[in-house]
Design a binder for these strands. Sequence first.
RNA 1: GGCCGGGUGGCCGAGUGGCUUAGGCAAGGGACUGCAAAUCCCUGUACGCGGGUUCGAUUCCCGCCCCGGCCUCCA
Length: 468
Amino acid sequence: MLRLTDTQTKTVREVTASTPGLLTVYACGPTVYRYAHVGNLRTFLLTDLIRRTAERRGLRVKLVQNITDVGHLQDDTAIDSTGEDKLLAQARLEDKSPFAIARFYEDAFHRDLAALNVRPADAYPRASEWIPSMITLIERLVASGNAYVGDDGTVYFAAQSYDAYGQLSGNRLEDLRAGHGATGESAATGKRFHADWALWKLAGAHREMTWDSPWGAGFPGWHVECSAMSLDLLGDTIDLHTGGIDLRFPHHEDERAQSNCAVGHEVVGHWVHGEHLLFEGRKMAKSTGNVVLVEDVTARGHDPLALRLAFLSSRYRQQANLSWESIAAADALITRWRTAVAAWAESPSEAIAPAYRDEVLAAFEDDLDTPKALQVLRRLEKDDEVAPGAKFETFAWADTLLGLDLARTVGQPVVAAALPGGAQSLLDERAAARTGKDFAASDRLRDELAALGVSVKDTKAGQEWSLA
RNA sequence: GGCCGGGUGGCCGAGUGGCUUAGGCAAGGGACUGCAAAUCCCUGUACGCGGGUUCGAUUCCCGCCCCGGCCUCCA
């Protein structure tokens, strides 16, 4: 069975389904005020790998991933000098309504997932459509004494009311510095304790994206969104919760406190966090200026699944350092494997190679040891003892976990794509020149074809072309 | 100050108390070719520093240095 590193216990533990045969998973999703960069996608891929691996053992996976389309992310302190949240700021920038912005980037998010072969979740609840449930949850927390209305009208969660606070992140309340991380002191706050956080903020000057509540018109704090949606859609026992490492604190620490206090017991059985992606040595972030999007990868002529393969070549709980070089290397490998798989498919059908299959599955189940799995497949690729038909079956099987579309070119003619206009006559001309041993003309025509995006190579059977 | 994850050959990256000590990219050599490209074959170079444990440490322990991240926006 699948074993994964549990953030809370810092151990590799078996993932267990509280309902037999059904694994419930909640994945923290994107905030849709901008394009997801490939670092975000690495985390979303983590959940996809977990799901695919669990399904190998016959588990059904019920996966919920939230869409944060309520922009009021900063809850206690003003993040920028204007105090304007990201979604509203972006809306102003693009001169659109905040909801139009949210839908636009939500669509882009789904496209990016599809490009990386990340299979869709069962539900993508939007925070904006979950406000009543959040309000109910906040009311419960107020009633139970875990939350209070501050002097400023904001509803806060009282961190000290939850004894187990800090167990997930390793932060102890006394070690958290008041106001640390924010540029200025959070002066106008009605908090009783510096580590308390907002569950409901009053609208104040905001007019967009606000909702009525028992405490006045306003908007929810960020952390309460995930508590409400996960409890509603997956129940009060959730087998697995995934997200990026940066969400461990405060987001997941606070979510855990809210959910556990609301239902009276530990809700999430297993917390899994993906480490950050670095790009050329630095954390990928807008502020660093090294953000790479899926479209940047395809614009350079790479298959987006090369990105997926590049991610698979390091472990999820390790910071990975991506570069254009590593993406290109992954692209080369994926092409090589597709070509090999298509060639093996021509051979007589053979049973799967069971030892290799078991090794690949064991690697995935061992805390998603994807580098090991790739190593096993490279070994299989070169193993002369295994019949080509068996290699095909084994790679096809492994691809249900890898998700690299390795069988994409099986059965396709080598020249399937359409030639650009004029290319065919150049090809004919070059073939004639080669017959006449006019190599100067042959080289010139090869350059002209290259300019059209057609690359030519010469084989014993004559010239072959492909689109670059 | 608190909490994490790391430092492996030109680069990226697995892994390991001793064994033929991954793999990829790049480089060099060869085959093929009119030349290229592509493909195939072959080759080299490692474990941040100092101590300790041990018959033996890149691997375990301690200290140090360095890198990256989180500490109330963040995947």
